[in-house]
Amino acid sequence: MRVKVNPLLCTGCGLCELACGYHWDEAFSLISSSVMLYRAEEKKNYMGVIVKTEEDLFIGRPEGAAAIKLGELSRGGTGGGASAKPILIREACDLCESTTGEPQCVAICPHGALYLE
């Protein structure tokens, strides 16, 4: 089971990042969040969502979704992967194991861009 991303449904609101931050810190912050909205290529309106797990990063970008091993990313990676580096120092997704019901990020996403599979 993991959190997956349908990036073309994402509107870039950042709520998933904030909800996951709350899951870790019980406060509102992005610093620990296991999910990151990728919005570095703003002029191109290019957005994606990245979820960090213990083993890999699930990168949901408009050209398709893929899992990249953490080692590959720290060696340089490619494309959106390289600019995902800040997430490497964050917590790994635990599927909100302490929460009953849906994981926080899935529950808050207004457009169904995140789902469990």
Binding site: T11, C13, G14, L15, L18, N45, P110
Partner: peptide, 18 residues
């Protein structure tokens, strides 16, 4: 192109045009 939202907005009222 894709619609974009402000921070925390569930509505996304900004269209991007290419």
């Amino acid at each position: 192109h894709r619609a974009r939202a402000c921070f925390a907005c569930p509505s996304a009222c900004f269209p991007f045009v290419k």
